[in-house]
Every structure is written in C-alpha cells, then in structure tokens.
C-alpha cells in the first residue's frame, strides 16, 4: 500500500481561508474526470421462510446515490411476490423503497440492478491535505456535520477507542492525514474474519474483538475519527475489483467511511477494510451515522417459522 505524501507546511491554510471556502460551498472539487467507469450492478437478496410469512412490511435502500462523481443512468428494483412499491427519501437523502406483502409467501426476492457512471472525487495527484486539525471545532457548527460527531446506534466513543485514535494520529496536524493514519491503523490491527461478528455488533464490541468484516472496520474507524472530532459517516455500496486483486467486500455489498475535510472539498471516502482511498471503483448507495441508518433491507413480518435463510448475490461488472 503506498504511503501518501506528507503535507508540507506551506500547504496549510489559515482558518479564515477555510471558513471562506465553507461559505462558498464545499463540493467544488474536480477530481479525476479521466478516470471514468460505467458499472452494471446486480444485487439480489432472497429470503426463504420455513413456514409461510405474511403481512411483511419492508424498507430497502439499494439505489446508488446521485452526486457529481456518480451518475445513475438506470435503476430498477424488483420485488417478488409482485406488489405495489413506493419510494421516498430519508433524512440522509438516501432513496428508500417501501412495500408490503400481505399474503402468505415462502420466499421474498429483492433484486436491484443499476447502471452507474463513475468518476473519482479525490485527485490522486493531490490529496485534500491542508485542513488543520485545529479547525475541526468549526465543524460542530455546520449542520450536516454535527450529527456525524455524536454517538449513534452502533457507535460510541469509549476511552479505549479515544486512546487508540490518539496513538493512530501520531504527530499529524492535518485532517485527511489523520484520517488516513486511522484507516491504516484499523487495517493493520484488525483481522478480517467473516463470521467473527454479526449484523448487530457495535463499534465497541468489534474494537475489543479486533476482528470483523467491512461493517465492523467502518464502525471502528468512524468511532476513532469522531473521538478526535473528525466528522465521519458510514457508507454502504459496492466495490469493483478491476485487477482481481482479492479486494475484500466485492462478494457482497461493501461498507466504508467518509470523513469531512473542511475547506478541501467536504466528504472523502476511505476504506479501512482494504486500506484504500475511495476511487472511481466505489459506488455508494446510502450514507448515515452507522449501519443502522443504511441497512439495505429491513422489515417486519408475521410467521415465517424458525428456519429462515438469506441468500445474497452481488455482481459489479464494467458495462459495454
């Protein structure tokens, strides 16, 4: 993994400059438009019930997000058994599909397919250095940052996590550099062990276990960032592995972290599971404070019996 170049002091901006940039809007980042990709994504979730289920109410978050670096040219959500589907946006701007299946059914299939045009937000020639750690307190005043500093359903900052964050920061005075250090810390100190945790494991539990899957890696990194006052949010999505590098998280949906870099373009993605700065191969679907805000499918139902199985298929391919 390449070590990013350290920021030279001359890059550091004054607080005033940064606040001015915030005023002008954060998202003016040109990134690397030449690194364009088109992906076809297919995501099928099949629930099979041992006994008939009924009166099931569901919410799914499977539509890739729209932003200047990610255009969704096609999206289709298919629910079987066929039923009426309605969509809306949640508080975090994620697209949510809602549906009910009242009749008895022994299988529920949720299929999402999309075509997404991607470019890369971050410029790999020039990472968004230059936002000093000192300026972080300003973030508390920014509405859309505030909630990503507070504790959330799965994430609380404990003294142990705080100590680890301080260790990981080292001597860094730069926000992006610090977050990068935390990512590497998590990547190196934690074991990628599918099955070691479950969908309800909190950041604290994962931190103690020192192992988990992408969800846990992301939770721990978010907790560490928040411990140092860096706004950090949870992203669910997909990862395309261009070189068949055995990247983690390409078999199913993936999760990573976005941190807010004040005055340098806002939210940037870091993937602690693979120790990578998020590039055009990452397709984000939903963002939130933690997994609880973005779970791809959740719902309630009656019946269904004790034996329930879940089968997930994800494929991300370059389109022709």
């Amino acid at each position: 993994m390449p070590t990013p170049p350290s920021p030279s002091n001359s890059d550091a901006s004054s607080l005033a400059e940064i606040l001015a940039a915030v005023e002008q809007g954060e998202s003016i980042v040109h990134g690397s438009p030449d690194r364009q990709q088109i992906f076809r994504i297919f995501h099928r979730t099949v629930y099979t019930y041992g006994e008939k289920a009924r009166r099931s109410t569901n919410e799914v978050r499977l539509t890739p997000k729209e932003n200047p670096w990610q255009k969704v040219t096609f999206f289709l959500l298919t629910i079987r058994p066929a039923t009426h589907v309605k969509q809306f946006r949640d508080l975090h701007g994620n697209n949510v599909h809602h549906f009910e299946i009242t009749e008895n059914h022994s299988r529920l299939v949720i299929e999402a397919q999309s075509i997404v045009r991607k470019t890369c937000k971050v410029d790999f020639e020039a990472f968004p250095y230059g936002s000093p750690m000192d300026a972080l307190r300003e973030c508390r005043r920014i509405d859309h940052c505030h909630e990503f500093l507070e504790p959330s359903h799965f994430i609380e900052v404990t003294p142990d996590i705080w100590r680890a964050a301080v260790d990981a920061r080292g001597l860094s005075e730069d926000v992006f550099q610090t977050a990068y250090n935390i990512m590497t810390f998590v990547y190196k100190r934690f074991g990628y062990v599918p099955g070691a945790t479950h969908v309800g494991t909190s950041a604290m539990e994962a931190f103690k276990a020192k192992s988990g899957v992408c969800q846990d890696f992301a939770h721990v990194m978010i907790a560490m960032c928040r411990a140092l006052g860096i706004p950090a949010r949870y992203v669910s999505g997909y990862l395309f592995d261009p070189a068949h590098d055995d990247l983690r998280g390409t078999q199913a949906s993936h999760a990573w972290v976005e941190i807010f870099v004040l005055g340098r373009g806002g939210w940037f993605g870091l993937d602690p599971t693979n120790n990578k700065v998020v590039d055009e191969h990452y397709v984000s679907v939903a963002t939130g404070r933690d997994y609880n805000d973005v779970s791809p499918a959740r719902g309630t139902f009656f019946g269904g019996g004790a034996h329930r199985t879940l089968d997930v298929t994800v494929s991300v391919d370059r389109a022709e």
Partner: peptide
C-alpha cells in the same frame, strides 16, 4: 441503445410482475 435497453428491461420486468400478480393476488 442505452435508452432502448434499459427501457426494455424495465418493461419486461413490469410485465412479469404483472403476470405474477394477475395469476395470484391481482393487487393491481
């Protein structure tokens, strides 16, 4: 072509859901 292709995928999907529905609950 992308318009044609995605439009057709959307359409055949809706038709299949409709057929399932018609031969089951007929919610529509």
């Amino acid at each position: 072509w992308e318009t044609v292709e995605t439009g057709l995928i959307q359409r055949i999907t809706a038709l299949n859901l409709f057929l399932y529905d018609v031969y089951h609950e007929a919610k529509i």
